[in-house]
Design a protein around this nucleic acid. Structure first.
Lengths: 228, 228
DNA sequence: TTCATAGCGATAGCTAAACTATCATAGCCG
DNA sequence: CGGCTATGATAGTTTAGCTATCGCTATGAA
């Protein structure tokens, strides 16, 4: 099944809606390519303008700054993830099966249905691993939060925590756990790519345990566990 | 008990050892104050020079860039944390008591012995919460890793994972869990400060559960849990 | 057909960050 | 006294980040 992602339409995230024109779409798709390739720090609107055959001034008509663009792109990812989770957990009544599906989706976004046709999800996934926390690790978080910069992320966390709650309505920290689940996933991928000695998980040897197995055991343990 | 932290002495982290002169010490202490106050992005060597009554050129004699300074400062924190953990867990034979102590230290660095007299640990702690992941979320990670930029962090993770292993030698992911324990701590503090809706933990209401209780239940559940 | 407008390229220019380089000087050490 | 170390003073470069103005072109409504 192929679908298009619903791009975030919070008008605070952009000056002109990138979906409204061909340059806008190019900014988004080339932006994803370039941030993935060069990293956020080495990425500039000047370079993006050159790649899109456009000018700095034109890019600035869409996004106030590269930080705004980053938040926009990362939000797309959270929207995708939410769609995929919903799609794969709907109509499942058994909470533990739901959780398995949930973890399956989080650790296999690229393979899992529905297929997203209007975004390069592979590159976007890499960006999320390396840059997503930079969206909120800023002096302006609170201000930007009020403008709704993080609604996509929040919706996702709420959805996750609801699923966790179904498995154990008495677990006292479902939201904290949901955040932990999400963040740990990307952290572990990053560590397995760059600090192999600091995690058992990952890509080094083909027989090594996976992030998925780590998350499954973590979530199950935590939700089943009863204090004394 | 009062002690001095052993500053990281990896000569790749600095051009001239900041412990070797009065300006060096000022750079470190004022650097901590200013990064905490303004955030890494708004912090510049120019401002630091003004505050220390010095010049940009003089600062550059100690640190190649503000990124190098950040890595240096964060490393100090990891050294402190390791000292405090060692201090509070030594001579304890019961693994679960050790883990309680461990979590107690991580969530109470500021109150726990020994007292560190040569560093403003409170400010440094805030910096770790907001900026520590930026030390490694860079395109140059692998290169910097080879230069030993992250040895303090790695030593700490290894020490943590050893303690976790004592409680359950068969748990398959002690290092992944150690990383998770550390990172989740700062994440949850950050979220409780800025995204109150996304965590049950924290400072809002006085009766709300603490990061400490969350971590305790998490670690215990995970280490006690047996699959099927 | 015409005319308004949206979209965008072209150009220019400004401020500040991030460095680098050179020289002079003050103070301490032998 | 002579030399070395630490640092201040000064100056200059490059690039990121951002703003402003102008004019062309395609599109679509009147």
């Amino acid at each position: 099944m192929d679908i298009k992602v619903h791009f975030p339409d919070n008008p605070r995230l952009f000056l002109k809606n990138p979906e409204s024109s061909s340059l806008g779409t190019k900014i988004v798709s080339e932006g994803i390519r370039m941030i993935k390739k060069h990293g956020l720090e080495n990425f500039t609107f000047k370079k993006l303008a050159d790649k899109t055959g456009s000018t700095e001034a034109s890019i600035y008509r869409y996004f106030e700054s590269k930080h705004h663009l980053l938040v926009y792109l990362i939000s797309i990812y959270w929207e995708v993830l939410q769609i995929k989770i919903l799609f794969n957990t709907q109509n499942i009544s058994e909470p533990w099966v739901k959780i398995d599906k949930l973890i399956m989706v989080i650790t296999n976004v690229l393979e899992v249905a529905p297929n997203i046709i209007n975004v390069n999800l592979k590159d976007l996934h890499e960006i999320v691993i390396c840059e997503s926390s930079k969206t909120y690790l800023t002096k302006k978080v609170d201000e930007e939060d009020k403008e709704g910069f993080f609604v996509s992320y929040k919706k996702l966390v709420f959805a996750l925590s609801e699923i966790l709650k179904e498995a154990n309505p008495h677990y006292p920290y479902p939201r904290a756990l949901a955040v932990n689940l999400l963040e740990t996933t990307y952290e572990q991928y990053y560590f397995s790519n760059h600090f192999g000695e600091l995690t058992e998980l990952g890509s080094e040897r083909p027989d090594s345990p996976t992030v998925k197995s780590f998350l499954e055991s973590l979530i199950k343990a935590v939700l089943i566990y009863k204090e004394n």
